[in-house]
Structures are given as C-alpha cells and as structure tokens.
Design a protein around this nucleic acid. Structure first.
Lengths: 219, 219
DNA sequence: TTGACAAAAATAACACTGTAAAGTATATTA
DNA sequence: TAATATACTTTACAGTGTTATTTTTGTCAA
C-alpha cells in the first residue's frame, strides 16, 4: 500500500499547490483591480503604488511579491484596457458586413473607446504606446497587435471589394489608424479647453475624416 | 538746485532698478537654459527641478524665486519649443506660393519638427497639449495659436484657390492637423519598436497621407 | 564708512514617491 | 511537535516637489 499512500500524498500535495496558486492569483487579481480603480481615478501621472497598497490594505512592498515593479503593474492595467479595446473592435467588425461600413464602424468604435476611456487611452496610445506590441491576450497573442489585425483585415477586405485602392495593407492601415488616433488624442487633450474640440464638433470631425478618407482612397 | 539733485537721484535709482532687473532676467534665463538642456536630455518624466538646480549651481529652492513651480518652468521650456515650431512653419509658409505645395510644405515642416525634437514635441502636443493655447510669443499672442493660424491661413488660401473644397476653415485645419499629428505622434512612440514606423517608412506614410488628402479634399 | 534695509540664496523640514534588504508572523509539511 | 517554506511587514534609502525660516549678500542713506 506504500505506493498508493504515496500517490494520495502526492495528490494532496498537488491540490495544496493548486489551492495556494489559486489564492495567490486571487490576491494578485485583487491588487490589479485596485490598481485599475486607482488608475481610472488618478490617471497615469497620479498613479501611485503606495496608494494602491493602502487602498487594498497591504503594505507597499507586498505588491512586489505579485508584480515586478510599478511598470509591471501599470502594464497589467494597460493590458486590461487592450482586452476591452479589442473586444470593442471585434463586435464592430462582426456587426457589419459591408466593407466600407465596416471600416467606418471600426473607426467609430475606436473613437468611442477613446472618449469613454480617456485615461486608459492616453496610457495605451500616448504615454506607453510601446506596450501595444507586448500586451498579451487570452489566446497568447498580443492584444494590441490583435486589435491591429482586426483593422488590417477590414482594410484588406475593403481592397478586395474594390472600394479602396490597392496598396500595402500595413501602410494603408497605419494611414487610417493615424488619422483617427490623431483626432482622438487631440480631442482628449483639448476637450474642455478649446470649444472646437468638444465632443459634438469632434464627432463632426470624424465624419469629415471618413468622407475624406473614402474619397481619397478610391481606386 | 534741490529739484535737479532729486531728479539725478531718481535717475540713478532708476538705472539701478533696471540693472537689477536685467540681472534678474539673466539668472532667470540661465535657469531656463539649464532646464531646456536638462529636458532635452531627460524628457518629460525624467525632468527634475533638483537636477536643474544642481546643474546650474543653485539650491533647488532658488528656482522658486524665478519660477512659480515645476510646471511654470516646464511651461517656459514648452514655450521655447513653440517659438521654434512657429518659426519652422513660418519659413515653410514663406518659401512656397502655390497653395497646395504650401499646404504640403507646412505638413512636412510639422513632421520634421516632430522627428527632430521628439521630447519637445511629446510635451507640446501629447503630455501638455493644453498649453498650446497659452504659450505666449514675443508679439503677445499665443505661439501655439500663432502656428495654428499659419496652418489655417494656408487652408483658407487653398480653398480660395479652389484646390480643396470649401468648408469650415477651422474644421478643415483640424482635420489636416489631426492626420499629421497622428502620424508624428505614433512615429515617435513606435520608432525603434515597430519596423513599419522607422523614419523612411513614416516618410512614405506622410506622402501617402498627402495624396489621400489632396484627392479626398478636392472640390 | 558705517548702519539700516531689501533682495537673493541657502538650510531645514515636510510629505510624498519607488524600491531593496532584513525581519516576523503564519501556514504547510515531515 | 519541530522544521520549513510562504506571505507579509518593518525598516531604510535615495529620490521627488514644495514651504517656512534663516543666512548671506548687495544697495542705499546718513
């Protein structure tokens, strides 16, 4: 019975490990959620490890047991943003079949995400845009790249359908992306300061951008 | 002779005041120049009052005698950037007479400024874009607004010349500006990380953007 | 030239920040 | 129950911006 006893022991050990691993992930998640709340309140510059720790009832140094450093935690917050962002693009892509409409729907989804998650957007695409290529998704790919692929797909299909001129898909995607990003990032910076950049006028601007885009990219 | 003596006294006092004011402006300028050097080395996040002070042989608190706080000094650094930026746009405007070429020349000047002053550009148009409307020029106007007016003028003249469709000048200017800003800001973020955003490819992108713009904004 | 005064600069201190090393409980295992 | 591994805290360091206070310096009038 010795071998049986051993396997039972091993099973217990296994479960124990799993349980502790689970508990570990739970507190990690708790820290992350506190960090997200904190970030959405204070933004990139006001974000502080010590405040996150205090908020969740831990000592600042405890966070270092779950995240390498401040950047690592901030990166996790960023990743969560990318996941949500990719979802938004995915549904926009899925709910439209006409290539040109799809392209615009993606643009609007991008725009809406930016305006409804200003602090996240600023970190993801302005302060720490270099993370776009790193943020991992559930599938193991980079969420940032993932959302990019969605946009590029829409571009490629628009090309195939003959509604926009053929060309390097990456370059064309970057071109379209740049335009919307430019509008969104300036809107976030100027909102509440320059009247022409209030939400209503910015929406008009996006519309105008799409018009120009469609006409300008005709085959 | 009492009144003459008094006036002489007053003149001396006047000169003395002027001299001290001049000296005051000199050290203020010295601090500002050290701050600019510091900023161009360390960037927005790494910029530190204490390092500026040490660099110039002052105690940190001395800076507060010449600038209200860190933001005030940073704003002065920013303003200097806007002055240079406006100059770049001005010469681009002046050296071209054809409306469409002028528009493109302005775009290229914008692009070149961004790529050759990445840290300044990021502060001016990304981190602290709200300062655009405040940065004062020698003429007493806002340099940021000044540079904006140059761009808008070029847009208006292109409309008058009939090379781009009529429309709200501000909206059209914002549209064009957004596009270039989008490209420049993403280029600065992605340079050295994503191959498609190296300088050569970004230049192609700007070219493509102008093509799309001209075609898309045709009357 | 000296003494009063004002301006400029420095000290000291406070409340923060991120982070590393060392110590202490707490829980798990033999 | 004793040994050990894990989770967490304490302490500490080197920074940061900023304020109030004190010292030094320079200017001016008697």
């Amino acid at each position: 019975m010795r071998s049986v006893s051993q396997t039972r022991q091993e099973r217990i050990k296994q479960r124990s490990l799993e349980r502790r691993e689970r508990s570990r992930q739970e507190t990690r998640q708790a820290i992350l959620e506190a960090a997200i709340r904190m970030f959405e309140r204070e933004g990139y510059e006001g974000f502080s490890l010590r405040q996150v720790a205090e908020n969740i009832g831990y000592t600042p140094t405890t966070i270092y047991l779950y995240f390498k450093d401040k950047d690592d935690l901030l990166f996790a917050v960023c990743s969560q943003g990318f996941t949500e962002f990719t979802h938004a693009l995915q549904t926009a892509y899925a709910t439209h079949s006409d290539p040109l409409e799809r392209l615009q729907a993606l643009g609007w989804a991008y725009f809406e995400f930016g305006l409804s998650h200003p602090l996240h957007y600023q970190m993801m695409f302005m302060q720490r845009a270099e993370w776009i290529t790193e943020a991992p998704s559930a599938k193991g790919d980079a969420e940032g790249s993932n959302s990019y692929l969605i946009q590029m797909n829409a571009v490629i299909e628009a090309m195939k359908a003959g509604v926009i001129r053929m060309g390097d898909p990456i370059e064309t995607t970057n071109l379209i992306w740049s335009g919307i990003h430019g509008i969104v990032s300036l809107a976030l910076s100027m909102k509440g300061i320059v009247p022409k950049w209030e939400e209503a006028e910015t929406r008009r601007l996006v519309k105008g951008y799409f018009q120009m885009l469609i006409k300008g990219l005709q085959p």
